[in-house]
Write a protein that binds this DNA or RNA. Structure first.
Lengths: 194, 194
DNA sequence: ACCTGAACACCGTTCAAGT
DNA sequence: ACCTGAACACCGTTCAAGT
């Protein structure tokens, strides 16, 4: 049976989860598929584009945040909080994914422009376009930076004594705290609500 | 004349500036020093620690922010803004440095724990320790993420038509806007000031 | 259409041996 | 003390050749 791109991508994701980004090489991936490394180049242009597709797969199905019209107070807050929490969860599902997404994002290869979805919510709330763009980018930097640090720490922990007694700080809690800080900053830039 | 570590580090910085992080290999560095690659290992333990020293050199002399007691209003704002602007300037001085600092930070090898200095300012203003830590880390994620994107874009621009007519957005302006957002978020977590 | 074989031009790191 | 030579175990990528 001929190789398929889908098969390649999901095998790559398996290697990423089990051994990390450093061990995700074209040769190792080929070995896992019982094929020579050069065979991969019939299906993908190069490693970069393979990684970009991996990012797409990791982020696939991430729903853009929606404003709940029935909510009163700050409807955008729970909306963005839910979206950010979903994004973090997907990243935490795959080892080294925050690092991977950040590097792909920089090269502009990742199909998903992450900051667009939250920006739309903010403009819907009356924020100016440029301000909304900046604010969402700040949000994305926070999410990727935070999760990257969580994943790096998890790896260090795995190297030292397994099951570390207590993590330095609860990731979920500090993530929530950081989100609140950014939301408070956004609130200050939003038109005054009654 | 024998090689010195200082010589190695500053030559490495030169390669980083001229050719970028991808081209900063032990073999290329050795070539620049008219020496064989193996010779480097008498002076440094491995590439990681060399990169960590590079980070230290890039960030050397970055003064921690000080609170101006004579200022009224929000003395911490200009203080943190000045520090963040200084940090950005140092990073912009060296190609790929934001990427480099982020990766070293994650592994915990970089001597300078960047988020400590701004955290001290916030606790001095009466913020609780944990909140201050989270807030400063959020600030650091923003700075590194923003500058990384600036540097990546600069590289893409250099690849395409040189002297691009107008950058997509002014880096300095969007940096200032992001800073303000974060400062507004911090203000909300600070004890009410008169 | 899909894959192998073989090569090219690299990596980081180690270590006996030279001076 | 400081460096070279030579090797080990890798990389990503290309491309003629096979089926």
């Amino acid at each position: 049976m001929a190789l398929t791109k889908t098969e390649i991508i999901s095998t790559a994701l398996g290697i990423l989860d089990a051994y990390g980004l450093n061990d995700l090489t074209m040769r190792r991936l080929a070995d896992s598929l019982d094929v020579k490394a050069s065979a991969l180049y019939w299906h993908v242009a190069n490693k970069q584009s393979l990684l970009a597709e991996l990012v797409d797969k990791i982020l696939a199905g991430l729903e853009p945040p929606e404003l709940d019209a029935t909510a009163d107070g700050d409807p955008w807050r729970p909306s963005l909080r839910g979206w950010a929490t979903e994004l973090r969860a997907r990243l935490l599902d795959h080892r080294d994914s925050a690092d991977l997404v950040a590097s792909m994002r920089a090269i502009g290869l990742a199909g998903t422009e992450l900051s667009r979805a939250p920006a739309a919510v903010l403009t819907a709330m009356g924020m100016a376009d440029q301000e909304a763009t900046t604010a969402s980018q700040t949000l994305i930097y926070f999410i990727l930076g935070h999760v990257d640090e969580e994943q790096q720490r998890a790896q260090l922990g795995a190297l030292a004594g397994e099951a570390s007694p207590t993590p330095v700080m609860d990731g979920t809690a500090s993530f929530a705290a950081g989100l609140n800080l950014i939301f408070d900053g956004m609130a200050a830039a939003l038109p005054h609500d009654g």
